[in-house]
Design a protein around this nucleic acid. Structure first.
Lengths: 212, 212
DNA sequence: GAATAATCTTAATCTGGATTAATAAATGAG
DNA sequence: CTCATTTATTAATCCAGATTAAGATTATTC
């Protein structure tokens, strides 16, 4: 009896162990799409990240807290949003597998976050602490390159998203969102897409009716 | 007679030489606010940049061209803007002394720019070519760190500007622009500020009347 | 310093999207 | 399977900011 139980425990912890490997493998693969890492470097990098499992609706970062980790989504779906004076939510970013989510402003300036980061599905993320990452920049310079490139791309993507948002009608933006993020569209409720697009759910609903 | 002429030529080229030094000094000082550079590194960096003088209204980058330089404003005032389908201008960014201006999307993706970059005053800029910069990242790693940090900051600043733009009324945004960029406000025409804020010049004029 | 161009103001009218409020449909927990 | 909660739709009314059009100031240029 005890033996069976033991086996189950071992088996489940083994499963956990493998799934962590899987998540970290995903991270290393992701990094290697942009930079070159020797196997030794990959190990150093791997060991610098901690895995974290999130339940659906679990909040990873609350407004008011200081964000002190960069986080890579290995599995699942998250959102970053802030609440305005009237307690209305505005979604700033969605993230799925192989994206990075965070309130970067809080992370970089070490000031209290204005955003929440929340899991929309059961998710697995890999986190690295600010100090650990700063040390990693010295130990593995390619990581500094990775984030330099990451931020360059994030910046221009965001700039073009904003230009779009100002120049294009809500209808056009919705259609573009659908083609660009088809997968996200199918995984999150419609009112969140409205929030991301900067329109009310009622108006999105009207748009959709007119498109039919 | 010839002697006098010679003297004038020499004097003016000497003046030019000093002003280049001045611009490059400004650059090095600017970099050293963020990173550490040895004097040898400072020389390497300095030599990687070329100075460029711009007349008022001179266009540095046309939409359609591929941006192939990063550029630092040593003196003067520039703007980056794009034109929509109805040939209306939308200002994306202003830049004054010690700012960097560019169509980063074009620079980073090597695709034709959708933006124009234009001098609003007689200006002096320092330019570094993409390939030179990429080599510099290897020769002087602190430069890679500089741009990593620069892009991080640019990204979060832009993100917060966008959140503001969506959440706040045009009046509030104008008031914030005035306090944040008082100097720019005094150097560029009002209709350009309207364009930057994403409103019509007529509406900005109305806002201003109501504020009095 | 007069003429022309560039910029700014005012006022009337119009519109994309918000707000409010009610109902309907889908999801999920027990 | 059922009741409660979460999402989504519809329709009426409202408003911030756009558009249009004219005139008034302010800069530039010759």
């Amino acid at each position: 009896m005890n033996n069976v139980l033991n086996e189950i425990v071992n088996f489940s912890s083994l499963k956990l162990y493998f799934s962590i490997l899987e998540a970290k493998d995903k991270l290393i693969k992701h990094l290697r799409q942009t930079i070159t890492l020797t196997n030794e470097e990959a190990v150093i990098v791997s060991n610098s990240f901690k895995e974290n499992r999130l339940q659906k609706k679990e909040v990873l970062l609350f407004a008011g807290e200081i964000s002190s980790h960069m986080q890579f989504i290995a599995e699942g779906c998250l959102r970053a949003y802030y609440m305005d004076e009237e307690a209305k939510e505005h979604i700033v970013q969605f993230g799925i597998e192989e994206w990075w989510v965070n309130d970067l402003y809080s992370y970089l300036t070490k000031t209290p976050s204005k955003q929440f980061v929340q899991a929309l599905e059961k998710s697995t993320i890999l986190q690295i602490q600010r100090d650990t990452l700063n040390n990693l920049y010295d130990a593995v310079p390619a990581i500094e390159r990775f984030f330099r490139i990451k931020f360059e791309n994030a910046y221009v993507a965001f700039q073009y998203r904003t230009i779009d948002a100002m120049a294009k009608s809500a209808e056009v933006r919705y259609l573009e969102f659908r083609t660009k993020y088809r997968e996200i569209e199918q995984r999150v409720p419609q009112y969140m897409i409205a929030s991301y697009l900067g329109i009310t759910p009622e108006f999105l609903s009207t748009l959709r009716k007119n498109l039919r």
